[in-house]
Amino acid sequence: MLIKERLSNAGIHTVLIAYSLLALFPLALILINSFKSRKAIFREPMGLPIGDSFSGKGYASVLSNSDFPLYFSNSLTVTCVSLVLILLLGAMAAHALSEYRFPGDTFIGIYLVLGIMVPIRLGTVALLELIVNLGLANTLTALILVYTAQGLPIAIFIFTEFLRSVSREIKDSARIDGLSEYRIFFEVVIPLVRPVIATVAVFSMIPIWNDLWFPLILSPGEETRTVTLGVQQFIGQYTVNWGAVLASLSVAIVPVLVMYIIFSKQLIRGITAGAVKG
């Protein structure tokens, strides 16, 4: 019995480790080669960047000779501002939907989460026209507004589900303590939703940081290019400068990676806290 159990245990880990390698191998490939000289990349793509094959040139050329720092700050601005707006406005709307009863509440609740099922990309044609008419073409503001609109439905959905599961009594208690409805939101509800903020943040951030569609269409200009779009153009431009391409890819990976590692524990807790029940 014990032996059998051990065998099956080993089998499980073999499968999981095999898949882990499959998931990690391509990533490792990029990171390893980003530190190598062009020759070394082609001579020995699997070799580690040690000795004479090590080269920081790729990173140097990315960080100095290009607009990469600009792209990076564009992406960071767009992602962070959108994220704050999604979290704040999403939590506010979810609070209103879960806490108060008013005529049309069900309708507005459904309306606001429709966007989960109907991707905003389908409106691209009219959206571009709208953005141009508003004078927002080639601005980061355009991206921020669109990403906020895109991220709100899922954020509202997750927050509402979560807030409905939270006891009403704590808000009533705050009312008896004399807090206004606004202060109840900021001082009681915001601390309460903290466990799911990570979940919402990760789910909202990934598609924003990695998006290619809207930067390509709404703000392809040099000044407003995001990292993702920048890397995409970069690859086309410098197909010879491998070190630089690989380094730029690595740079593009890092922020999401950091964010994910910070939040990964809370992420699962948030998902299992009943936020995504299907």
């Binding site: 006891s167 009594e169 704590i170 009533d172 208690s173 705050a174 009312r175 008896i176 303590d177 004399g178 009681v188 601390p191 309460l192 903290r194």
Partner: peptide
């Protein structure tokens, strides 16, 4: 009157303590 001006205090079933 709003709750806070009624001179009452309330104890809830779920305690309703501020978790933070």
């Amino acid at each position: 009157l709003p709750p806070t001006d009624r001179g009452i205090a309330m104890v809830f079933q779920s305690y309703a303590l501020y978790p933070h």
